[in-house]
Design a protein around this nucleic acid. Structure first.
Length: 543
DNA sequence: CGTGTGTTCATAT
DNA sequence: TGAACACACG
C-alpha cells in the first residue's frame, strides 16, 4: 500500500514526535488505518455478524484514540475513503478474490470446528466495508467529532484539508499509515502513532529543503517528488520491473524532468516498459496532483490543485480517470456520511431492533461507577448508541440522493423516538466500551479512559525508572517516557552525515540493506491494492 | 555489490 | 498489511 518503500527511504527525515505537539490544533485522521487495526481483534465477529460485544471492539479501539487526542486538546477531523479511483479498479477486483478465498477457507475451518484457525484466516480477509465505516460515523456524529467522507481517496481529501486555513476547516497535520499522503503533498504526516500518541513524523518541507541530509531532495520540487513516488510504484500504477524507490530517486535526481526520465526508462528497459506506461504515468501523476476532493465551503467537488489547461485540452476535458464528477447533491450526501460512496445506496441510521441486545455488552469486569452514571445522564439525548446498530440500506437511484436522504432522516427520527427507552441501556453500553462523554471534562475520567488511571498497571517498563519524574499528570509522565524510548531507539536519525553524491546510494544502502525487501510482489502481479477502499464492484460501471 | 523479489511472522486484545 | 530477513538477478 502506498508508495513502495518510501517510508524506509525517508527514514533520515523521520522525527519521533508526540502528538501533543499539536495541542490546540486541528489534525486530520485517516480513518481507514485505525479501522483496519481495530478490526483485527474482531474480524471473525464482523464477518459472521456474530452477536456480542466483541463485534464492536474496533469502535472502542478507534474511540480510544480519538479520546486520547481530545485529552491533549487536539481537534480530530476524521476522513473516510469514498469510491475507488478508476486506476485502482482492477486491483480492487483482485483483492476481492483474495479476501473471498480467505473467507471461504475460514468458513471451512469453522465447519470443522477449528475456531482458531478460522479466526486466523478471517484476519487475512480484513476488509473495512462502508457499513463498518458507517457504524463509526454514527458514533462520531453523536460525539460531535468532525468527519468527512472523501468522494474518492481519503488521502487526497486529507491533502486538501492540509492546504486549508484552520478557519476554513484545514488541519495542520495528518495521522495515517499511508505513505501516499506524501505523494499527495501533505506537509506534515505522523505515521505509526501508538495509543499513547507517539509517532514518526515526516515534514515534507524538511524533506525537500534540508541541506546535507542523505538522500537529498534539494533539487526536487513537489512534482519531481511525486514523480519519484509514481516511478517507485504506487497504488495507481505498478513500477517498471526492476525499478524501486532507489532507482526512481536516482533517475529523478539525475534528469530532474519527468519526461526525460520516461524517455531514458524506455531506452534502458525497452520492452519491459509497457506501451502505455507514459500515459498511465501521467494519469497517476494527475491523481496525486488533481484528485477530486470535497470542498465543504462550496459543497461541491473540486480538484485537489487547480487543473492546468494542458490537462483539460489534452483529453478533451475528459477527466473521468480521476473518477467521475459527482453532482453537488450526491457529493454532499457522500461527504456527510448519508450515502454509501461505493454502492450509492443511502445509509439508514435507524436502529435495528434485532440488534439492540448486542448493545448491552454483558462485559464482565465493567461496572458503572457513580462517576460514569453522572456522565451518562449528561449524555442524555445523545444518540451515541445508534451507532452500534447494524445499518441497513435502502436502495435508491444514484440520481435521487435527496429523496433517499429524506426518507432516511424521517425513518431515523421516528425510530429513534420509539427506541428512546433503550437509550439509557445503550449509552451504558458505550460507557462500558470506554467512551467517555465529550462533555466530560474530568481529567481523571479521561485518564481512566486512556488507561492511565493510577491504579491501572502500565506494562511500560520505563514507568518505574522514571519514578522521580515530576508527576502533575501521570499520563504525561508515561507519555514522555515513551517518547524518550522511541528516540533512543532511533539514534541513526541523528547521525546522518554529509557525503558526496555517490555516497547517497551507499549511505542509504548501508542504512537500509537490512530492511529493504518489502513486498513488491504486489507489483509484479499487478495486485498492489490498497485494501483500503471499500472495494465493491466497479463503481464506475454504474455511471 | 546493489536492488528488487519472495517468504515469514506479528498484527489487537 | 507491514516489517524483517534471505535470496536471486544483473
Amino acid at each position: 500500500m502506498g508508495i513502495n518503500n518510501l517510508l524506509r527511504f525517508l527514514k533520515p527525515y523521520v522525527e519521533s514526535v508526540h502528538i501533543k505537539k499539536y495541542s490546540g490544533k486541528r489534525v486530520g485522521i485517516d480513518a481507514y488505518s485505525w479501522l483496519h487495526k481495530g478490526a483485527y481483534s474482531c474480524n471473525m465477529e464482523l464477518y459472521l455478524d456474530m452477536e456480542g460485544d466483541k463485534k464492536y471492539q474496533f469502535l472502542q479501539y478507534f474511540m480510544h484514540r480519538i479520546n486520547m487526542l481530545r485529552h491533549y486538546k487536539i481537534t480530530p477531523v476524521v476522513v473516510f475513503d469514498g469510491g475507488n479511483t478508476p486506476c485502482k479498479a482492477a486491483t480492487e477486483d483482485e483483492r476481492h478474490r483474495r479476501r473471498k478465498t480467505n473467507r471461504d477457507m475460514a468458513m471451512e475451518k469453522l465447519k470443522e470446528g477449528d475456531t482458531n484457525g478460522a479466526s486466523e484466516l478471517f484476519q487475512r480477509a480484513v476488509s473495512i466495508t462502508p457499513q463498518i465505516a458507517h457504524q463509526l460515523i454514527q458514533i462520531l456524529r453523536s460525539e460531535n467529532i468532525e468527519f468527512v467522507v472523501a468522494p474518492y481517496e481519503a488521502d487526497a481529501q486529507l491533502a486538501y484539508l492540509s492546504g486549508l486555513e484552520t478557519e476554513k476547516g484545514g488541519v495542520v497535520a495528518i495521522i495515517s499509515e499511508d505513505s501516499d499522503l506524501l505523494a499527495y503533498g501533505c506537509p506534515s504526516v505522523v505515521f505509526k502513532m501508538d495509543r499513547y500518541g507517539n509517532g514518526d513524523e515526516i515534514v515534507l518541507e524538511k524533506v525537500l529543503n534540508i541541506v546535507g541530509r542523505i538522500p537529498s531532495f534539494m533539487n526536487f520540487n513537489r512534482e519531481l517528488f511525486t514523480g519519484m513516488c509514481v516511478l517507485a510504484g504506487c497504488d495507481f500504477l505498478p513500477s517498471v520491473p526492476g525499478i524501486g524507490i532507489t532507482k526512481a530517486y536516482n533517475l529523478v535526481a539525475k534528469y530532474r524532468n519527468i519526461d526525460r526520465v520516461l524517455s531514458v526508462l524506455k531506452f534502458e528497459k525497452g520492452k519491459q516498459v509497457p506501451e502505455d506506461y507514459p500515459t498511465a504515468f501521467k494519469e497517476a501523476m494527475a491523481v496525486f496532483q488533481h484528485a477530486r476532493v470535497y470542498d465543504a465551503a462550496s459543497k461541491k467537488l473540486k480538484p485537489l490543485n487547480p487543473l492546468p489547461p494542458e490537462l483539460l485540452q489534452g483529453r478533451n476535458g475528459d477527466l473521468d480517470f480521476l473518477g467521475p464528477d459527482l453532482s453537488p447533491s450526491i457529493a454532499v450526501a457522500i461527504a456527510e456520511g448519508n450515502l454509501d460512496p461505493c454502492t450509492m445506496e443511502a445509509f439508514d441510521n435507524s436502529p435495528q431492533p434485532g440488534y439492540k441486545h448486542n448493545l448491552s455488552f454483558p462485559d464482565s469486569g465493567s461496572q458503572l461507577s457513580t462517576q460514569e452514571e453522572t456522565t451518562e445522564s449528561k449524555q442524555e439525548g445523545s444518540f451515541a448508541i445508534v451507532s452500534c446498530n447494524k445499518t441497513i440500506k435502502k436502495r435508491i437511484r444514484g440520481d435521487m440522493p435527496l429523496d433517499a436522504m429524506k426518507r432516511n432522516s424521517e425513518g431515523k427520527q421516528k425510530r429513534m423516538t420509539s427506541e428512546e427507552v433503550l437509550h439509557k441501556s445503550e449509552t451504558l453500553a458505550l460507557k462500558r466500551l470506554g467512551f467517555p462523554s465529550q462533555n466530560d471534562a474530568s481529567v481523571d475520567k479521561e485518564r481512566a479512559s486512556l488507561g492511565f488511571a493510577p491504579n491501572i498497571p502500565c506494562n511500560n517498563p520505563f514507568k518505574k525508572q522514571k519514578k522521580d519524574e515530576v508527576q502533575p499528570n501521570q499520563a504525561m509522565a508515561i507519555e514522555e517516557q515513551v517518547s524518550e524510548l522511541t528516540e533512543i531507539e532511533k539514534p541513526e536519525i541523528l547521525s546522518a552525515t554529509q557525503k558526496s553524491e555517490e555516497s547517497v546510494d551507499s549511505k542509504f544502502i548501508e542504512q537500509k540493506s537490512k530492511r529493504m525487501g518489502e513486498k513488491l510482489s504486489k507489483q509484479s502481479d499487478c495486485n498492489r491494492v490498497t485494501s483500503k477502499k471499500c472495494s465493491i464492484l466497479n463503481f464506475f460501471s454504474r455511471v
